[in-house]
Each structure stands twice: as structure tokens, then as C-alpha cells.
Amino acid sequence: MFTGIIEDLGVIQNLENDKDNLHITVRSGFTSELQIDQSVSHNGICLTVVKIDNENYTVTAIKETLDKTNLGNLKIGALVNLERAMKLGDRLDGHIVQGHVDQTAVCKSVEDLDGSWVFTFEYDSSLHNITIEKGSITVNGVSLTVVNSKHNSFSVAIIPYTFENTNFHAIQKGTVVNLEFDVIGKYVKKIMGKNLAL
């Protein structure tokens, strides 16, 4: 379980294909605090630490994960948003994030508002995921508030701190990002869908 509050920007050090899997080696400021088998969110994707080597650690993404996320687009030197799993009893500063990406989206525009930015993303609506105005959304692991919610797109407003301390500063028109829709909204949608089918 995560909160969507990014702790660190990791730097991709190595990418190694192994059959249908991808071993991803990341350099992070908190590597020394990690243990094998711990969960870490990478751009919103919960992955397990399988190796630690000084400032670097390695996680493995399987085909299912690669098919549904933007991990296959990673390059050496790319920045990834990192968050360790939350501790019970900590403040929940973002919202409840599972680390299970629902689908990807494409950035359609970035608007500079002289002190903040508005990013607009478009996603495939055939998967029946939804956003609501002022609801929660996770973009590349970052907990954000939806503005301008539409059938297959939404926007988020980004403050300077988030822009500078996450990989939002590297997102531009055409960039593919990971989305995790609000878990409460997903349950409500599923229940309402069943009731409507009766």
C-alpha cells in the first residue's frame, strides 16, 4: 500500500531482458535502507526488490506488468518516481494507492501558467475506468486531484514542488504515463454496474 507521495527520484542504471521479464536496476538515495523482498513503487508500479548492490537495487517486471505499464519505454538514465510502502500508523498525505497500474495514458498538452502547470492526459475509455471532478488519480505514482474530468481524458494541476521533485518535469506532449484510478471509485463502479445489470 502506498500514498502517492514521492520520496525520491531514482535513476535507471541498467535494463536486462531475461526471457519475457525485465530486470531494472535503479540508483536511489534510500537504497541503503532497503531489504530484499521489500515493495517499492516505481512510477506507480509495485515491484519487489530482488538484489541490492551499494547505491543500486534491482527489481523484476514480468510480462503482465510490461504489457500494462510504461516500463517497457524506460532507458538508461531515465528518472523514475519512487515511494516505499507506507507504514501502519503514518499519516496518509495522498490517497490510498495500491501500486497496481490500471492502464497507461498519453500526455496531450502541458500548459505553463506562470507558477504552476496543467497537464492533460487521454486514455482508452474502452477499459471503463473513470475519473470524477476533484477526485483522486495516480499518475506515474503521484497522488493528484482531477480537474476537467471527461469521458476519456482529465487534467491535473502541478505545483512547483511536485514539478521539480518528480519526473513531471520530464513529461511532455506524447509522453506515456501510468494511471491508477481511485480504488474506492473502482469498487463503486463495479457495484453499480452489477446493480444496473439486474
Rank of each mutant, 00 (worst) to 15 (best):
S136Q: 04
E122I: 10
M192P: 14
E180K: 09
G193R: 03
T138I: 09
A157K: 03
S153G: 13
S155A: 13
L127C: 02
S149A: 13
I132A: 01
I130P: 00
K186E: 08
F119N: 00
A197M: 06
V142Y: 06
F163E: 08
A197L: 11
L144A: 06
K189N: 15
S143D: 07
T138S: 04
V176E: 08
V146P: 06
L179N: 05
T175C: 12
L198E: 09
F154A: 07
T120K: 08
I171V: 14
I159H: 11
V142F: 02
I171T: 09
S155G: 12
N140M: 09
K189H: 12
V183K: 01
Y123K: 06
Y161I: 12
Y187G: 12
L127S: 09
T138M: 04
I191L: 11
S149Y: 07
A157W: 01
V156D: 11
G193D: 11
V176F: 10
L198F: 10
K173T: 12
I191R: 14
I132R: 00
T145K: 00
Y161H: 10
E164Q: 15
K190W: 13
T162A: 04
N140T: 06
N195R: 11
T166A: 13
K150F: 07
A170I: 11
E122S: 09
V177T: 10
A157G: 07
F168Q: 00
S153H: 08
F119S: 02
F168T: 05
K189W: 02
F181D: 01
T138N: 07
A170T: 11
K150E: 13
T145R: 03
V147K: 01
T162H: 07
S149C: 15
W117D: 10
F181Q: 01
P160E: 00
L196Q: 15
